[in-house]
């Protein structure tokens, strides 16, 4: 907690399709990351967004918080391997 890391790497928004009930709140809160299919279920951008894109990260967090089914999460992916990985 409280460790400020270098903003390298990126994130993707992930949905748990079993929990999702197609409320569509994620699309309203993060339209740059989430599109909806014709049944109202999300199609999430699979490309990695850099963590330096703070506005997109913030709307991803709004989407995670606003999901009525708690089906979303922000998954961080670091492009630099950590000290334990060679």
């Amino acid at each position: 907690m409280g460790v400020v890391r270098r903003r390298s790497g990126g994130f993707v928004l992930k949905v748990n399709p079993i929990l999702c009930d197609g409320y569509g709140h994620c699309h309203e809160l993060a339209p740059e990351l989430v599109n909806v299919d014709e049944w109202g279920y999300p199609i999430i951008k699979t490309a990695i967004t850099p963590l330096s894109d703070l506005a997109t990260l913030e709307s991803a967090r709004y989407a995670v918080r606003g999901c009525p089914r708690q089906a979303l999460r922000v998954e961080r992916l670091s492009d630099d391997p950590g000290p334990t990985r060679r």
Binding site: V36, E38, W39
Partner: peptide, 19 residues
């Protein structure tokens, strides 16, 4: 109450968009 295909119920704005 919404059906499983929630996005295309009568309550959805997506109905207005024609397929």
């Amino acid at each position: 109450r919404p059906t499983r295909a929630a996005g295309r119920t009568a309550l959805s704005p997506l109905v207005a968009a024609p397929l």
